[in-house]
Amino acid sequence: MFATNQVWNSLFEPLPRNRTYEELERIAREVRKDIIRVTNAAGSGHPGGSLSSADILTALYFRLLKHDPQNPKWDGRDIFILSKGHAAPGYYSVLAEAGYFSKEELMTLRKMGSRIQGHAHTDVPGVEVSTGSLGQGLSIANGFALSYRLDGRSQRIVALLSDGENDEGQTWEAAMFAAFRKLDNITIYVDRNGIQNDGFTKDILDTSPLEEKWRAFGWNVVVIDGHSMKQIVEAYETSLKVKGKPTAIIANTVKGKGVSFMENNVAFHGKAPNKEETVKALAELEAGSGS
């Protein structure tokens, strides 16, 4: 059964995974525009942390993960868990761009009766796990990783954590467990954008030295520029070869990345752009001046 799985995986690659960094950057720009449009349409949501993770999410869904938008439950898919569930606007925008559902439906974010719930929810095609309460994503990843190892399945388990999520005790319970159980089928990105809900992480609850903490918990740790497609891709590909340890890719990012007045601005963690801000943001992204 396992051999058949492997053969099937290698025969069937639903999406092209050879996109250039320039193509990925172009797609990420479209994703950012959708993040602005959709949070504006919703009137609420979390644009800041969606923009900071837009490049990572784009690289994952347009180059790194094995998945099939035409068949979201495809058995050979890699598992992605958005542990920072509030980055749902970014996640949904990437999924819509990849073809999991229409852009029209994307624009119903946070509206009553829509599947596109305020935080990541499994009713949305392509969303693997419902999230929104921080600190749980890595434990879910541990469960998938244990199960896939038991069954001899080679798919990758990937999670995206937020910066502030390192405040949660459960993140460290899960980190200790994953390393102890040698779950080398897990790769996580930590979107270190330096801002949490109430302010800068260095002022609210400083998580530094973050890489030393993850290393001390037994992880293979890589620090990258979370807006460099090359570094996002290379760090992931390297993590696939690491044996005996899970990998944490600590991605240094800019909250609100790509829109000048949202960058490093605490106010846009959990506030949507108004009409005027939206016009300005879209113009900036169109011109590519903010990136």
Binding site: Q136, S139, I140, A141, N142, G143, F144, S147, Q170, F177
Partner: peptide, 16 residues
């Protein structure tokens, strides 16, 4: 680590 245990249980169940 009960929080990790119960959520790891959820992940295992989601995986089948």
């Amino acid at each position: 680590s009960e929080a990790n245990m119960i959520t790891t249980a959820a992940g295992l169940a989601m995986a089948g």
